[in-house]
Design a protein around this nucleic acid. Structure first.
Length: 920
RNA sequence: GGGCGCAUAGCUCAGGGGUAGAGCGCUACCUUGACAUGGUAGAGGUCCGUGGUUCGAAACCACGUGCGCCCACCA
């Protein structure tokens, strides 16, 4: 006997272990089975489960369980990401807390070892959390981006792209994170508007030259007043970079500055002279119209400097301190950039060259992980030629080889990928895939899979340049102690470089494995829109380049999970809802169902506790329905054939279950998780529990016989259908019930998904049962309105034609029970003093004269009559419209006519009932 | 500056050319033998505004208003 409630805390773990132990999570490889695969978006090894993961993995698990039950050979490939910066940060922080020596003190090797140790010890908490959620990944295939196989793939890809000319080394301006002292890609920079200042400086002209600068204009913009200036006015939001100015630029059309173009001005503090040049970049209407050009510290200026061959002065070191260089005045050397800013403004002011300071909102770049201001710095880095790789990735989506769902997200994808910039992939970190490039003498470098390979390349290269082997050996022993000929690049690759390979690297590439054969391209990628650029686009590029096929058929983009006020959850806001707390409180099933039920396409999800509670209650409802079935010995009967049931009630539930299966299947196929969840919810609660079980009670609790036997089997059948259809959403409770209710040869997780079956349809039964349900509802409604005590039983008389009378007869017992009737009769004329309900073609009379309030009853009937009259008026208006009758589809016109007739009939009966009341 | 999205019940949100929906909340009644984590019955809506398309618009289109988000080098 089942307990009164599902003890999910106790059961979930056991059930999960049972699944895993049975091998249910592995692909079936059943002969002839279609394959279906999903690669998990690998969570950071440092991570713990947040609500975004919960949603993401719930949806994946729903698809996986659905397809598994549909008989496909299913692989959900799990794994984790080494998350370069994030992990390095975590371990360094930990070392600091333990007051251990710093990373730089213990050296690279020791540090990397520590990270691995940390990973073994506490990395991957999230895997266990995913298991608590019920994720049915094939854990035997778990991968890690830094494990041997995947690292091999990374090296192969890097070398191949290099050979293809799609990876190159370049010195250019890059986004530099001074906290982590590494380059980062454009995507890792977050531009945020902050309060800043706009400083206006005077740069004095060389040799005290002067010019007339217009300061007033008439309506037509012609200057009316001039002043004599011996300087050019520039404005900047970043005064500290002025030391690196190589020029001042104005727009060629800017007449104000025409007299001084080509001349030079003094760069204050630096005491250098720099040219005044023209370029299209300055906007004459902004600021003073003159822009200082700092080629080495600003992306715009960089391009201007390149165009005009203007000297770039590198001002900052890796920590964004001013460098020790002859072009930096001694005073500022070694100063932090912000200290330098302050000092420079003061010094400019002291020289009388500060015109004014304005407050100004400025867009400032921040490192997405470090949170510090990003500094554009010139460095040597490795770049991927993303533009070339992007081409086929664009075409693949254009041609529909990969589809976005909702398709709108394809626009976002296109917008970015069509304007893609070179991707900086090198990071000055220690935790990650080391770049397979080796440097040798004379500035040569060699890209190869191994040092041995690189050495061969080097020897060939140096030999070709005329060096003898002996020379090379000399070079090898160049320094005392024998420095090696080649030194490997110190840098590692961007984490996303390895995650871009995830769909094929996890399946065994570069080896030709059966898994690659079977499961690539993967079927569906489930992810949120915030990593379309970081991840989806890059997987598309790498997947197509290396596999010659797109990595997935469909990219399903789900919503972001927000808090109940619509705010993005974040630690700093303190509004994080921890999925594990919800799981403890309401069970994994409840959380999963909530997320699925709210996962409408193209919307954010606002999560609230009450919703989760509601869907936990749904589980309890199901549990108790099952308990009822158990108590009434509704056992699954293998010999039961739903197509041959004889009672209308059973035909109806079979029909409804079939309809529900069709709906759930259709909605899941279309990734409409919310509609799928809604369909099974309604069927379970509003059809099976509210009506079927109630209607079946008289039979189940009545005398033994064929009808009772059939009903028991039908109830068990319907319940089994529910368990199956609900299983992807609520795997634990359904599996528990499946196991408890009957001895089965298969666990629910591997049972067969209900398929639509034409033979199970029964519109006749559906119509008949709807009549019964409406009748009962109608009587209940009137009872309530007339304040008939809930416990009181009252008689009822039906006035109607033969078909209605026959229906009434069939279902007399349940109607009496559910509507609380003492006696049911039929008649041709209504009894006196009765409340009358118009029900289809019939009239239901409840002779409760002694309890009814005549006026209230009149009011009720009048209200209904008014409603019917209004409806008829509305329909008449339509039907009177010639255009409507002519142009609307005949079906719609017919519909309106039928509706009108129905209301008309109702109106007539209501009129008669009112007339009878008048006579009382 | 470009791009995307959203305005429907008190709250959170589905839906979608003809008849307005869910969950939660609210009101009244009900400890009836599966379930009070429940049952029954209710109240509650100018579907943001304006114009257009259409026989018909809450739905489609345009504009407006308000609110989000993404991308972007205005110093």
């Amino acid at each position: 006997m089942l307990d009164k409630n599902f003890n999910f805390n106790e059961a979930e773990g056991q059930i999960y272990e049972g699944w895993e132990a049975s091998g249910a999570f592995k692909p079936s490889h059943a002969p002839g089975a279609e394959s279906y695969s999903i690669v998990i978006p690998p969570p950071n090894v440092t991570g713990s489960l947040h609500m975004g993961h919960a949603l993401n993995n719930t949806l994946q698990d729903i698809l996986i369980r659905f397809e598994r039950m549909r008989g496909k050979s299913v692989l959900w490939q799990p794994g984790m990401d080494h998350a370069g910066i994030a992990t390095q940060m975590v371990v360094e922080r930990q070392m600091m807390e333990r007051q251990e020596p710093k990373r730089t003190e213990i050296g690279r090797e020791a540090f990397v070892e520590k990270v691995w140790a940390w990973k073994e010890e506490s990395g991957g908490t999230i895997i266990n959390q995913l298991k608590r959620l019920g994720a049915s990944c094939d854990w035997s295939r778990e991968r890690f981006t830094m494990d041997e196989g995947l690292s091999e793939a990374v090296v192969k890809v890097f070398v191949q792209l290099y050979k293809d000319g799609l990876i190159y080394r370049d010195k250019r301006l890059v986004n530099w994170d001074p906290k982590f002292e590494t380059a980062i890609s454009d995507l890792e920079v977050e531009n945020t508007e902050v309060d800043g200042h706009f400083w206006h400086f005077k740069y004095p002209l060389e040799n005290g030259e002067t010019y007339e600068f217009p300061i007033k204009h008439d309506e037509d913009g012609n200057p009316t007043k001039w002043e004599t200036r011996d300087y050019i006015s520039i404005a900047t939001t970043r005064p500290e970079t002025m030391l690196g100015d190589g020029a001042v630029a104005v727009h060629p059309s800017d007449k104000r500055y025409a007299p001084i173009v080509g001349k030079r001005c003094l760069l204050p503090l630096a005491d250098r002279y720099i040219p005044i040049i023209t370029d299209d970049y300055p906007d004459p209407d902004f600021g003073s119209g003159a822009v200082k050009i700092t080629g080495a510290h600003d992306f715009n200026d960089y391009h201007v400097a390149k165009r005009h061959d203007i000297t770039m002065y590198d001002l900052m070191d890796s920590k964004a301190r001013l460098v020790d260089a002859d072009y930096v005045p001694e005073k500022y050397r070694g100063m932090d950039r912000f200290d330098a800013r302050k000092a420079i403004v003061e010094d400019i002011d002291a020289r009388g060259l500060l015109i004014k300071v304005e407050d100004k909102k400025i867009m400032q770049p921040f490192g997405d992980r470090s949170g510090v201001v990003i500094e554009p710095i010139r460095t040597d880095q490795w770049y991927v030629d993303a533009k070339t790789l992007a081409q086929p990735a664009i075409e693949a989506v254009e041609k529909g080889e990969t589809k976005f769902v909702p398709e709108n997200w394809a626009k976002t994808y296109f917008q970015w990928i069509r304007n893609i910039e070179p991707w900086c992939v090198s990071r000055q970190l220690w935790w990650g895939h080391r770049i397979p490039a080796w440097y040798g003498p004379d500035g040569h470098f060699f890209v190869a899979e191994t040092e041995e390979e690189a050495t061969k390349l080097a020897i060939a290269k140096y030999t070709s340049e005329g060096y003898t082997l002996e020379d090379i050996n000399d070079m090898r022993r160049h320094e005392h102690g024998g420095s090696p000929l080649l030194v490997q690049d110190e840098d590692v690759l961007d984490t996303w470089f390895s995650s871009a390979l995830w769909p094929f690297s996890t399946l065994g590439w570069p080896d030709k494995t059966p898994e690659l054969d079977t499961f690539y391209p993967t079927s569906t990628l489930v992810t949120a829109h915030d990593i379309i650029f970081f991840w989806v686009a890059r997987m598309m590029m790498q997947g197509i380049h290396f596999m010659k096929e797109v990595p997935f058929d469909t990219v399903y983009i789900h919503a972001l999970v927000l808090d109940e006020h619509g705010q993005k959850m974040s630690k700093s806001k303190g509004n994080i809802i921890d999925p594990l707390i919800l799981i403890d409180k309401y069970g994994a099933d409840a959380l999963r169902f909530t997320l699925a039920a709210q996962a409408a396409q193209g919307r954010n999800i606002r999560l609230s506790d009450s919703r989760v509670e509601g869907y936990r209650n749904f589980g309890t409802k199901l549990w108790n329905a099952a308990r009822f079935c158990e108590m009434n010995e509704c056992k699954t009967d293998p010999a039961f054939d739903p197509a041959t049931v004889s009672s209308t009630l059973n035909q109806w539930i079979v029909h409804e279950a079939n309809q529900c299966a069709t709906a759930v299947t259709r909605e899941l196929e279309a990734f409409r998780f919310n509609d799928a969840a809604g369909a099974i919810y309604k069927f379970t609660w509003n059809v099976f529990c509210d009506w079927y079980l109630e209607l079946a009670k008289p039979v189940l609790q009545g005398e033994d016989g064929p009808e009772k036997t059939e009903t028991r089997a039908a109830a068990a059948y319907a319940l089994d259908q529910i368990l199956k259809l609900l299983h992807p959403f609520k795997p634990f409770i359904t599996e528990a019930l499946w196991k408890d209710l009957a001895a089965r040869d298969k666990a629910l997780i591997t049972s067969e998904w209900p398929q639509f079956d034409e033979a199970l349809k029964s519109e006749v039964a559906a119509t008949e049962m709807q009549w019964v349900i409406d009748l009962i509802s109608g009587i209940r409604s009137v009872r309530q309105e007339m304040n008939v005590p809930a416990g009181a039983k009252i008689p009822m008389t039906l006035l109607g034609a033969a078909p209605d009378k026959s229906k009434l007869e069939t279902h007399e017992q349940v109607i009496a029970r559910l509507a609380r009737l003492s006696d049911i009769s039929t008649a041709d004329a209504p009894p006196a003093g009765a409340v009358e309900i118009v029900h289809g073609d019939a009239v239901v009379a409840l002779p409760i004269a002694d309890v009814i309030d005549i006026d209230a009853e009149k009011a009720r009937l009048q209200k209904e009559r008014d409603k019917a009259t209004n409806e008829i008026a509305g329909i008449d208006k339509k039907l009177a419209n010639k255009n409507f009758v002519d142009k609307a589809p005949p079906k719609v016109v017919e519909e309106q006519k039928t509706r009108r007739a129905d209301y008309e009939a109702q109106l007539e009966k209501l009129g008669q009932a009112l007339a009878r009341l008048e006579r009382l």
